[in-house]
Design a protein around this nucleic acid. Structure first.
Length: 451
RNA sequence: GGCGCGGUGGCAGAAUGGCGAUGCAGAGGACUGCAAAUCCUUGAAUGCGGGUUCGAUUCCCGCCCGUGCCUCCA
């Protein structure tokens, strides 16, 4: 059996993956903060780690994949203030929408989807440990992590404590012992969500939740920790600091998670999506026009570590690609169940640091083979590990409904063709094209596709 | 300013110290009443300047360009 290779952000090298326990691989990926609809960047993270989990499940007998929901955060409080909705209502609503949207992209639910608000005691316990060990201190109702107490700090992002301070654009709070110190716990006013703690009523800082939830559900150390590239600093750097220090590993950055995997960004017209640029593409909106599978293929069409510049043209191109596969599959006889064996060309590509473009190229190569049950089984097996091709019979290139006027014109054209009135039939076709509908004549009759 | 990533055909996108995949688009052909869909065939690329080397797109240095993080961010 070939081994999985992964690029480890901690060492900046592609490495053979060697699980701590080959009978149980443990994976954690930072999930979304639920205060708005998920954008396509959230989806990229979910799809990438879904593929990683699928690959791991092929290679190892047991995999536990944990991906959290952050449901306490100042952004959520802001959203609540703006909309007038209760915080709980907002987080529940957008957690549900996130899970629905990811399901539409054929993202399998993680084994555990912990929520921050149900892990407050674990966070408090972790903070207490850090205070006891001399890595954290209380100041004016806050608890802060003392960065100089962790000599290895900065190893993930390649940024020393001094460099971080030199580039800091934030005001440094006067009660910090060191300018680089960051908040573990902060006080809440009465109108803010808060929990009782040894330091008064308050709420957790951003980073402590993942340290606590990963430890709770996976144990420390575990195998793979992932997330978007922007989380490297400060989020993951601080997670490492908290968790390593809580476990007395002052010089070993891998004492928390052995391998760190970061996916690149989705950009639009070459720039990162941001609210201020107004170029944020929401999964929810895209799903109105495209099947989730098209979006999934689009997200996997570039290597996960590369930036992915998204455009409607690119999505449309992937829809054409997917249509080709589905048509071929629909015409093949054979079992509907994906075969146990993933074609080696596809598996090898995925094992090489999740090289999905290579895997898709291998998929295209499969189409060169002769029709038959073996081809169908191989395509389905290859598709299954990438998360594609599960419903060829129902495949539609667009999430579209054909309007009545199109149906009428189609019927008129059928009649005209029956009478060999081709002039009239072609007129109708031109008319439909002008209105944005392309006709495909199939053995089952004409089908209209939106252009 | 500090740290990082990238520049491959018209577009997208892999890989590689020596023949540079694959897809989309384009062109030609088959099929079709004509098309569409499908199939076959096909042209087309490594930012610039040095260095290492028998040989560099690949390794090293410099430059230019783009982009990301350093503030919330997947």
């Amino acid at each position: 059996m070939l081994d999985l290779k992964l690029f480890n952000s901690l060492t900046r090298r592609k490495e053979d993956f060697n699980p701590l326990d080959a009978t149980h691989v443990r994976l954690y990926a930072c999930g979304p903060t639920v205060y708005n609809y998920a954008h396509i960047g959230n989806a990229r993270m979910a799809v990438v780690f879904d593929v990683l989990a699928r690959v791991l499940r092929r290679q190892y007998p047991k995999v536990t994949y944990v991906s959290n929901i952050t449901d306490v955060d100042d952004k959520i409080m802001d959203a609540a203030r703006e909309s007038g909705e209760a915080i709980d209502a907002i987080t529940e609503k957008f957690t549900r929408i996130y899970n629905e949207d990811m399901a539409a992209l054929n993202v399998a639910p993680p084994d555990v989807q912990p929520r921050a608000t149900t892990h407050i005691p674990q966070m408090i316990a972790l903070i207490e440990t850090l205070i006891t060990r001399g890595h954290a201190y209380e100041a004016q109702g806050h608890v802060l992590f003392n960065v100089p107490s962790f000599p290895a700090y900065g190893g993930l992002s390649g940024r020393s404590r001094d460099e971080q301070i030199a580039g800091a654009r934030v005001e440094i709070s006067p009660f910090k012992k060191d300018p680089a110190d960051f908040v573990l716990w902060k006080p809440s006013s009465q109108d803010q969500p808060g929990w009782d703690s040894p330091w008064g009523r308050g709420r957790p800082g951003w980073h402590i939740e993942c340290s606590a939830m990963a430890q709770e559900h996976l144990g420390v150390p575990f195998d793979i920790h992932g997330g978007g590239a922007d989380l490297k600093f400060p989020h993951h750097e601080n997670e490492i600091a908290q968790s390593c220090c809580a476990h007395g590993a002052l010089h070993d950055l891998s004492a928390f998670a052995k391998v760190w995997v970061h996916n690149g960004f989705v950009t639009v017209q070459g720039e990162k999506m941001s609210k201020s640029l107004g170029n944020v593409m929401l999964v929810h909106d895209l799903l109105r026009d495209w099947p989730g599978e098209v979006l999934r293929l689009t997200l996997l069409s570039a290597h996960y570590r590369q930036p992915l510049d998204l455009s409607l043209d690119k999505i449309a191109e992937q829809a054409r690609v997917l249509e080709k596969f589905h048509k071929r599959l629909a015409a093949l006889d054979g079992p509907e169940d994906p075969a146990l064996q993933v074609p080696p060309s596809v598996m090898e590509a995925l094992l090489d640091d999740l090289n999905t473009p290579q895997a898709i190229a291998a998929l295209n190569a499969l189409l060169q083979r002769e029709d038959g049950p073996e081809l169908k089984a191989d395509l389905l097996a290859a598709g299954a590990i990438i998360g594609l091709f599960q419903n060829s019979a129902d495949w539609q290139p667009h999430a579209e409904t054909v309007p009545d006027f199109v149906q009428d014109l189609l019927a008129q054209r059928i009649a005209a063709r029956k009478e060999k009135n081709f002039k009239r039939a072609d007129e109708i076709r031109d008319q439909l094209i002008a209105k944005g509908w392309r006709i495909e004549d199939t053995p089952q009759g004409p089908v209209a596709h939106k252009i």
